[in-house]
Amino acid sequence: MRAVRWALGGFGLAAGGYAGWLLTRRPDDLLAVLAWLAGGVIAHDLVLAPLVLGVCLLGSRLLPARAHAGAVLALAVFGSITLVAIPVLVGFGAKADNPTLLDRNYLLGWMSIGALTLAASVVVAFRDRRGGT
């Protein structure tokens, strides 16, 4: 175990060092890359995580206990789908001369996933009540 850990640690440090070298080879990009690296952490730790904790706290106060499992399902599935969908929902990559790119009704697609998730969480809530857990 000790040797495996040292080997993994060594590889990890070497790969990280290689990444650092690759990044410094493009000095003009470096500042923007660092800003995006830090921005992701800030967006998660200071915005998304407190938001999710707030929603959980609110949900645990407002919803009956048997609805919790379903609510967590809805939050996890629909929350992550919403993040995944941001690029297609905002559609900034769409081009007027290319009808084959971003060629779906994404708002409808996103809302249908929302509706299906809600239905699934209701089913879970009722199944949990029947099961008496």
């Binding site: 060092g17 290689y18 990444a19 493009r26 990009d29 890359v33 995006w36």
Partner: peptide
Amino acid sequence: WTFSFRATHYAVGWLAVGALVLHIA
């Protein structure tokens, strides 16, 4: 963003895997 996507996504890929393997160690 203003940086080159291909070069940066490649470099940060090494960074992610390096930090991940170190974390596992």
